[in-house]
């Protein structure tokens, strides 16, 4: 990762207070103007409605003058609101940028073995997500918080991802309208895995649609396994591996999908929302926001520990392992605790 200037929590907190000090009055004004504009708009609507009900459609000049005045009030104050909001955002945006580019990277560097890249506004490309084979089709992709790093000796790529698909729906008038649905919202991780067989293997959430049936009834109920070669699939899906994948699903408490090929595991889980974000409100102190970010990082690291299954795949690799290899793995630590 290139050298960059980091800010401390204290410096970021000072920046937050500065945003409140300088931007706060503008935000307050923006809110006031918003309410006045809204009142003008609602007032116009109410007056015209009452006029229509009382006068039976006859033109009442006074009413229209009043409605006109309120409309002007609405327009003027909505413009003032926009202006104040913009001034406030001019203070807030640099703060958010500082958080993402100078504060969060420092936390990530403390938390992971090595950071190769962190790009808050970028993510995995559409081509890579398609290549994973987990999502056969989607129309739009939004990804951010791209992190390429190393954890417990395993290189990985991480990003928050949203996939959407567009489809046509017919309405009551017989016409059609375009609807955009979110089909996936969660994390997408690519981790190292020595794929020692030739055939790609897909383990998709929801049982009953696969080409390979394993001996584990519970695994078959939870996942559909797709692979062109059943023996290759079972070479990766050892009983230990199946238990482990079920453990990952239990940890995520949401649907998970995995693909194994090209010496990589492609993993995604519909965990929803954004991780590694600063608190929604500027009124929350930095140390409070930091707590949430730390919790997110702990969660990501635990998930990565679970995905560190390079050595669980086969007997040959298992035999090469020593306790030293496992010590950083939280699964191992949990199993050997006490």
């Amino acid at each position: 990762m290139e050298e960059r200037k980091f800010v401390t929590a204290e410096e970021l907190e000072a920046a937050r207070l500065e945003v409140i000090r300088l931007g706060g009055p503008h935000l307050k004004k923006a809110k006031t103007y918003w309410w006045i504009a809204l009142s003008g708009f609602l007032g116009t609507c109410v007056i015209l409605l009452i006029n229509a009900m009382v006068s039976g459609g006859e033109t009442n000049v006074a009413v229209f003058v009043l409605a006109g005045i309120l409309t002007v009030v609405f327009i003027v104050f909505i413009m003032l609101h926009g202006k104040e909001q913009k001034i406030y955002m001019n203070y807030l945006n640099p703060f958010n940028a500082t958080y993402k580019t100078q504060f969060l990277p420092a936390i990530l560097e403390e938390s992971f073995e090595k950071i190769y890249a962190f790009e808050p506004h970028n993510g995995l490309s559409k081509e890579i997500v398609i290549k994973s084979g987990i999502f056969p089709s989607f129309d739009y992709i939004t990804t951010n918080d791209y992190l390429r790093a190393s954890h417990n000796g395993m290189n990985f790529e991480y990003c928050d991802t949203e996939l959407q698909e567009r489809h046509e729906e017919s309405d009551s008038d017989g016409g059609t309208r375009t609807v955009i649905d979110t089909m996936f919202l969660g994390v997408f991780i690519i981790a190292e895995f020595d794929h020692f067989v030739d055939t790609p293997l897909y383990i998709l959430d929801g049982g009953g649609k696969g080409t390979v049936t394993t001996e584990s009834e519970i695994f078959n109920q939870n996942f559909s396994v797709k692979c062109e070669n059943e023996i290759d699939a079972l070479r990766i899906l050892t009983p230990e591996m199946m238990d482990h994948i079920l453990k990952i699903k239990e940890f995520c408490k949401k649907s998970i999908d995995l693909a194994f090929f090209d010496d990589k595991i492609y993993f995604c889980s519909s965990l929803g929302g954004d991780r590694l974000e600063i608190a929604g409100s500027i009124d929350i102190p930095v140390y409070e926001s930091r707590k949430q970010v730390d919790e997110d990082i702990v969660f990501i690291k635990q998930l990565l520990d679970l995905l560190n299954i390079r050595n669980l795949k086969s007997k040959s690799s298992q035999r090469k392992l020593t306790d030293e290899d496992y010590k950083g793995n939280s699964v191992y630590q949990n199993e050997h605790r006490g």
């Binding site: 020692f196 001996e215 023996i231 290759d232 079972l234 070479r235 050892t238 086969s314 007997k315 040959s316 035999r319």
Partner: peptide
Amino acid sequence: LDSEDHLQAARR
């Protein structure tokens, strides 16, 4: 060891 894994998978 690799051939052992292969045989195990075939057996399963």
